[in-house]
Write a protein that binds this DNA or RNA. Structure first.
Lengths: 311, 311
DNA sequence: AGGCAAGATGCTCATATGAGCAGATTGATG
DNA sequence: CATCAATCTGCTCATATGAGCATCTTGCCT
């Protein structure tokens, strides 16, 4: 359209050449107001695109939509970088920022584990809070020795807040229900579980239901176990508990052998912060969000858009 | 830096959330002025990027630099599309726009030929001018039959301006100097050449010095001729005349067999419009621009940047 | 043709913004 | 520790801009 061409010229003069609307009007023989209106339209039509390019930028619009649509307390969405990935780091940084700014500071913070949370821990600055007690929410897994595994993650978070840490001295999944019950009956374990269940805030991630799962990596489950779970509708795990698209436990048997606070606690919590990054986790993320497991979501733009798609 | 993070937050609130600087100040406990300054910095540092996304957008900044650096009368630079090519079309459109807006309207317009100029001709709207006589500047080549070749191009431009056309009834390059002189001595040919030399404006492109050249395609030169020219320093041709990086004729022998107005006319002309698109033509474009063959340059962003690089 | 609704235009006026400046703060230096 | 330069801060004031409204076009239906 002819009008559109003028819009382009006006936008160029205004944004590239820093001319005033008056000047542009004079130049193009348009009234000052016409120029203003053309600029508004140009922005609306997306001819003028204003973008904030920064690893720590956020997508406030998407955040608002997510909060609205899924009844969250808050959402933090960071732009996914164009090329390859710095996505995890950006999301982790954002989660760290959120934790640091969170008020009131929780006295106890329950944490799960995973690559994502490890990244969050590393992104937290020293002194991000003071006197926060960090409690593990589910059975320990030593993701990889070097970085100290699940325990190391909790310790890092606690240290940087000059706080204490309560580790859960238990495997994630046990082979027999009886063993699991025995472990839970142990005084130290029971105490940690109580502390975890009563944490004032939760910080957790979820894993997709595929062979890359940390449970497989650590030998708690075999690749075929995971396949079977997927076949039965599992979309991923939260605190080691595999759930289907509606958020229900897929295999109660397995669940009974899993050590950690149960998902109801997350649902009931006022502040349960879910951190997720990456395309592989869209399905489980959708479930976590729609089934009310989290009240705060921290994620990347791609995931956010996936969560906003119809159905 | 800490400051930078605040800049990002401020920019988000201002540009994404349409908050006023006052509001942002209140929100972030900054003075209104601080907010304003942060925004200015954010723009300067490129954290806020304002982009005009439109096939007919232009790069006024680059245009100004080109005019300045190379002493041009005017420059038109269109953004190169991200992915593959619509570059030629965009440049052609821009050239057509430039011609249409050009004042005073030239009584006679000298044109060369080539894929690029063909695209320009097609982009010109009916009635882009009235009563312009179009004259061919150099020997005819029938690029491809379908679209009517060099003659068709000139005819199209003339028709759309309800004007006349003067075709140059001659091959581009002749085998013997004597034949060339004989042809030029022909009354009709001589008349056209005079008309061409005296045109009030010139519109031309250049070809790179490689086997894709239209001269090879049309059998005026062999692939090995072109190779030889390149070896002797030719970077491309303008009006069928091969020149080196300094704009000098590479092979006077060959040049003497080439029919068309000579390059001096372009250098002397007040309005000689050079249209070029595509990465293959950076070298010849540089030569045309630096050796003063054109007074107006129409090109794409990539070429423009290449022309602005040091040396 | 006449009349009417939808949209565009140019205005007034309140508000948002940037330039320029004076005072305050910081940090380096003797 | 005093001094000073360099930067930063919050201000006044002039200017640029958007909201809201009356008026004018335009196209459409009767």
């Amino acid at each position: 359209m002819e009008e559109e061409l003028i819009m382009v010229r006006v936008a160029e003069l205004y944004y590239d050449e820093d001319k005033t609307q008056d000047e542009i009007g004079a130049l193009l023989k348009l009234s000052r107001w016409k120029v203003g209106r053309l600029l508004t339209q140009a922005r609306e039509r997306g001819i003028v695109r204003i973008e904030i390019v920064h690893p720590r930028a956020r997508r406030l619009g998407l955040e608002r939509q997510l909060v609205e649509r899924h009844g969250l307390t808050a959402a933090v969405v960071v732009p996914s970088p164009d090329g390859d990935d710095g996505t995890l780091e950006r999301v982790a940084q954002a989660a760290a920022d959120y934790l640091t700014a969170m008020r009131p500071v929780p006295r106890t913070l329950g944490v799960s584990w995973g690559r994502t949370l490890r990244a969050v821990a590393e992104s937290l600055p020293d002194g991000w809070a003071t006197g926060v007690t960090v409690v593990q929410l589910n059975g320990g897994v030593s993701l990889n020795r070097r970085s100290g595994g699940a325990a190391g993650l909790a310790v890092t978070i606690a240290q940087r807040a000059s706080g204490h840490v309560s580790l859960l001295p238990s495997p994630a999944i046990l082979e027999r229900v009886e063993t699991k019950q025995a472990i839970e009956a142990d005084r130290t374990v029971a105490a940690v579980l109580v502390e975890a269940a009563e944490a004032q805030a939760f910080l957790f991630t979820a894993g997709p239901c595929d062979a890359t799962s940390a449970h497989v990596e650590n030998g708690y489950l075999s690749a075929s176990d995971v396949e079977e779970l997927a076949r039965r509708g599992a979309v991923g795990d939260v605190l080691g508990r595999y759930i289907d698209a509606d958020g229900n436990i897929v295999d109660p048997q397995l669940d009974a052998r899993t050590v950690g606070v149960d998902l109801g606690r997350l649902r009931a919590a006022k502040r349960s912060i879910f951190v997720t990054a990456g395309d592989a986790k869209h399905d489980i993320a959708r479930t976590v969000v729609t089934s009310g497991l989290c009240s705060v979501l921290v994620t990347d733009e791609t995931t956010a858009r996936a969560l906003l798609e119809e159905r």
